[in-house]
Design a protein around this nucleic acid. Structure first.
Lengths: 269, 269
DNA sequence: CAGTGGTCTAGACCACACT
DNA sequence: GTGTGGTCTAGACCACTGC
């Protein structure tokens, strides 16, 4: 007796949490890590390689799940993190898109200087004036910031941003020579929209994150004249290093901010 | 024929995505929103009410799921967001804990001034000197920042922070009178650890987030003397409003930072 | 309407920490 | 070993977008 009940279940084809490495699917990920981290890495590779360009939609979660041979939930968690890092933007009902500095509701995402009245909208965009754009050889400190060797070619750009006719920001920025070959003062002057949008469109360089070091300083004579302030006026010195994918530094920017009608805003949490 | 197969399945007791309101479980959540957001709100209420205090463990995900009558995954998503907001801290194998400014690996989480050598560790904690702690009536601007009415009682604290004997930070801060009744210069002087840890322990006030407005300024005569700098030295002015749960402002702090050996560090993403 | 992301559940197993 | 959070899957349904 007692032989007909207690059915034995067949082995599930794709067992949950098999811990399998996904390396064979579409790329290579040597070290072990959670599946969704590996997927994140693979998506990152596609972003770096330019398979999906800024502003474009990436494949749907279901498509990516099929491509990487994982469940939709795992892809979702990978995309969740990338979208928390501002590399992707999800839009319900439409798809997931590669973040871009252009056509983004929050333009000038990295510029933290705000008018004291808070109303960034009514102030409108800054009036931009390129002072010059020169080819130079990297000095020691510039080279170190950009992970180059001293003497390697760099581009130096200087410009002034004014609000309501008042010069407010003086910037001096350095870019590695090779990725930005062909950048000229003209192209900078004629471009509408954020400089980082131009970098994306014309040079395929997307700035992903940045770090700023802030100090209070006095201007030198040239700087005082360009910003139309007294030589003893206190100014904000903002030194920024901006990075692309893979934590590669791609820009060193030194800004001098007037803070008589504006302030640097920062949220802490 | 054909009556014995195709078993009809019984109704599942707790159907997936029933869209049911959870109001009856433990609190009230009038407007509709995703379940995990409602759970997040309920957890937040327990944090505010002091049911779980800073540093303590909250119930396990399974316990909370049972309490709120939802699945573990839903509780998990709620906790995920709260932990992304730095209100909770997860520790694998141990539990989920209420974040605290004390016994936290990253002490002085809101202080962004770093030594130029980057090595916060070797520098050690600041030497703190309380100048005074007075009961005052709120001026118009103080009242506005703290959501009080002009003339309501506030506490004003002034102090200096020094590194290696060099006075570097001069702070003036205002606190609403009622929550901080009983705060004295002595209690501030004798307390070891961050001021926000004292606020948690002694007054049950946990600072959750803050906003800072930064400017470059010159000190007045008093300030210059306290910081041991010339009257024309450029200094960083950092005005902070710190909030508890529910976006209630609980502190206004005006700091003057010397930036000759330190800098204000900020990460953008 | 179909397709997309968003939410929810249920159940399995892994990795870690304490005891 | 037991309990905790962490990962993964599968399947269902909701909400939004655009054809």
């Amino acid at each position: 007796m007692a032989t007909n009940s207690a059915p034995t279940f067949a082995t599930i084809a794709n067992p949950p949490y098999a811990g399998s490495d996904v390396s064979g699917a579409s790329g290579l990920t040597p070290a072990f890590s959670p599946l969704y981290q590996q997927i994140k890495g693979l998506i990152l590779q596609s972003l770096q390689s330019g398979e999906w360009k800024p502003g474009e939609a990436i494949p749907s979660e279901m498509d990516l799940a099929a491509r990487f041979r994982v469940s939709q939930g795992t892809v979702r968690k990978a995309i969740d993190e990338l979208s928390a890092d501002n590399l992707l933007v999800r839009r319900q009902g439409k798809g997931t898109f590669v973040a871009t500095h252009a056509e983004q509701h929050v333009q000038y995402r990295f510029l933290k200087l705000k008018p004291d009245n808070g109303d960034t909208q009514s102030e409108g965009p800054a009036e931009r004036t390129i002072i010059d754009c020169k080819r130079l050889r990297a000095s020691a400190d510039i080279a170190r910031a950009l992970s180059l060797r001293s003497g390697e070619p760099v581009l130096q750009v200087r410009r002034v941003l004014a609000y309501a006719g008042v010069p407010t920001i003086l910037e001096e920025l350095w870019l590695p020579g090779s990725p930005f070959k062909g950048l000229t003062a003209d192209r900078l002057s004629n471009y509408k929209g954020p400089m980082y949008a131009l970098f994306e469109t014309e040079f395929g360089v997307r700035m992903v994150r940045a770090e700023e070091s802030i100090r209070a300083v006095n201007p030198d004579a040239d700087q005082a004249q360009l910003l139309n302030v007294a030589i003893h006026a206190p100014l904000l010195s903002v030194e920024r290093v901006a990075y692309t994918y893979n934590d590669t530094p791609m820009e060193l920017r030194r800004g001098l901010y007037r803070t008589d009608t504006h302030h640097y805003r920062n949220a802490l949490s």
